[in-house]
Design a protein around this nucleic acid. Structure first.
Lengths: 226, 226
DNA sequence: TGTACATCAGTGAACGCGCGTTCACTGATGTAC
DNA sequence: TGTACATCAGTGAACGCGCGTTCACTGATGTAC
């Protein structure tokens, strides 16, 4: 039952919201140190000077905390990409390059959150649930829009792919993007994901190689494709 | 102290070797079901009808079992790639395509082992230790050799990359491969890793898209690069 | 060939630890009259 | 403005579980003479 006449959150609500944020911040600190399986409610509580059960006032259980972290991370990534796209003026290719670099930079700055997004974090945790797939959409949309500006006309694409991407776009209400651009952007994303995940796991470092040039090459390849 | 005059393993040695294999097989079964953090010595022992401490007769500890699984997996992947390269006759591009498909197929058949290779499996486990980097080399060599057959002449490559890859090859005693081919093959590998890891985590499935065509495109792109 | 001995696979108990989660409760805080 | 009440954050104990690892031991197996 809500209070008689009240608009906006009361002091208790604000307190709740703030503690929720602190819990999430502590959780991220743990992820940064120990990987997804190191996320422990008891340890988080201890870090905040509370006992374990207190957290159940703020999150239903461990999985919903994890889910919220994933959704936050998707939102954060999308913001970073959108900022890069918006900050850059000039040719669409330059904007795409900025988005690509922003993708890489975000992952390098917060590798633990990147891992949270793109690998099944825990046994039994469904990383492809509808809500999570939806949460990933905004970031993808940034890339799609910039890519669309690069290639107005619909280029060649095998019929199978055309219909598959067409369905996908219809399902996510994506308009003003051709199936060819969607397919090509997905491929770009896969390429970037390959580079980024090898980079943050230290594979290039152990080879003694700086992957920076690879990212620039991606952009050139992408542009030439149309 | 070794027995007086004996060549080859005795019955006890053979028994040991067999149990070791059974332990590893049980471990892989567990990985297939629960992910890397689900690998439990006690659970493995139970599956083999033994008690936990018995495993310490066969492996020093959990980490060395894990390491052995990783090394086995690298060997297995290298075999699969070499088989694909050897089975295919004809133009070098066809052989490369076969290797690419073999890479994908191996990952699809054994996603849990693929994950074991290309992500930091556990907090505190050093996936980039020297022995593991060495173990990964044979698989890379298969790709390098096939790629080399495709492009004999040394094409353009930024100076920074040229020297970095030159050093890398010197360190791993890789000969008859140009720095440009090494760089390009590394890029191909990163691309494939991106596709494969998204595929085995279910990202394409959740998009309703069959990534098969993407792999074929990789090969075409690679060949055209020279 | 038979017997004594060394080897070593496997057990069972124990150590110390951490996990997520539930439950009944205390005590402070904000709210309504 | 003051008092009674409802709300609800947080505690502490408990449940049941699993983990890796050590240790002293039993008992079977292979080996040497």
């Amino acid at each position: 039952m809500t209070p008689k006449s009240r608009t906006g959150p009361g002091p208790r609500d604000r307190f709740r919201a703030q503690v929720r944020q602190e819990v999430k911040a502590a959780a991220l600190r743990q992820l940064a140190e120990g990987g997804p399986e190191a996320l422990s409610l008891n340890a988080i509580a201890k870090q905040l000077g509370m006992t374990g059960p207190a957290l159940y006032r703020y999150f239903a259980n461990r999985d919903s905390l994890l889910t919220e972290l994933v959704i936050d991370a998707y939102g954060d990534l999308a913001s970073a990409l959108a900022r890069a796209a918006g900050d850059t003026t000039g040719h669409a290719a330059a904007r795409l390059a900025a988005v690509v670099r922003a993708y890489r930079d975000w992952a390098r700055t917060e590798p633990h959150r990147y891992r949270l997004l793109f690998r099944a974090p825990l046994p039994g945790y469904d990383a492809q649930s509808t809500s999570l797939v939806d949460a990933s959409q905004p970031a993808m949309n940034v890339a799609l829009n910039v890519a669309s500006a690069l290639a107005a006309s619909d280029t060649a694409l095998p019929e199978g792919s055309r219909s598959q991407f067409g369905e996908w776009m219809k399902r996510h209400a994506i308009e003003d993007v051709s199936a060819a651009v969607a397919a090509r952007t997905t491929m770009l994303w896969a390429h970037l994901h390959g580079l980024v995940s090898l980079e943050i796991e230290g594979n290039f470092t152990s080879m003694g190689i700086d992957p920076t040039l690879f990212y620039e090459e991606e952009v050139r390849d992408f542009v030439q494709w149309f």
